[in-house]
Amino acid sequence: MKKASCAFILFLLLAMTSSNNANAFPEYQAWSQKHSKRTVNCAMCHAHGDGPEGSKPGQMDTLDADAQKRLEVARGAEKPGVHADNPILNEFGNYIVFKLGLEQVYKMRDDPSQLKQALGEESDHDGDGISDGEEFEDGTHPLNNQSGAPWKLFIQNLQKKWVMVAIILFIAITSLFGFKHLLRYSSKVD
């Protein structure tokens, strides 16, 4: 009897974890949205904006045999370090699984604010200068370098393109200087 109930509980637990792995983790989306006050959808980590369930590209119903295989591998990535190419996730989603492992992702649902620290400063998939974790907090897309908190992007780009900015500032200042003197000249010849 005891054995049976143990087995039943184990079965329930297994069913729970597997179904949780199959589903998305909307807690992260909800947190990002609340924290940033921006609209965020599943496309931050998933291949499709409406999430993994459905019959559109990047969703469960459209996976071919190869993609199904990759999905199975990805679902087994309990510990960090597995390069799982999950077809329903995008590059950022796959990176989270690689970095943390599903077990950790599952645990962190209760407090998604830890994600930024867990991902670290160095990962910046779109190369816009704002780390993936920070983009998660800001509710902007970690894979789109045109998406970011405007002010942060401004600072980043200013540093990145400072030569161009300096040239433009030089142009502005010399032209101001030039106009000043030409205006003086024109007032004198009048």
């Binding site: 030089f170 030039g178 106009f179």
Partner: peptide, 26 residues
């Protein structure tokens, strides 16, 4: 108005030169 031709010419050269420079850079 008093005009100093030297001053006037200086303004012209400075102004024109600076604009030429910024125009070229732009």
């Amino acid at each position: 108005m008093e005009t100093d031709p030297l001053q006037t010419r200086k303004h012209f050269i400075l102004g024109f030169g600076a604009l030429l420079l910024s125009g070229l850079a732009l």
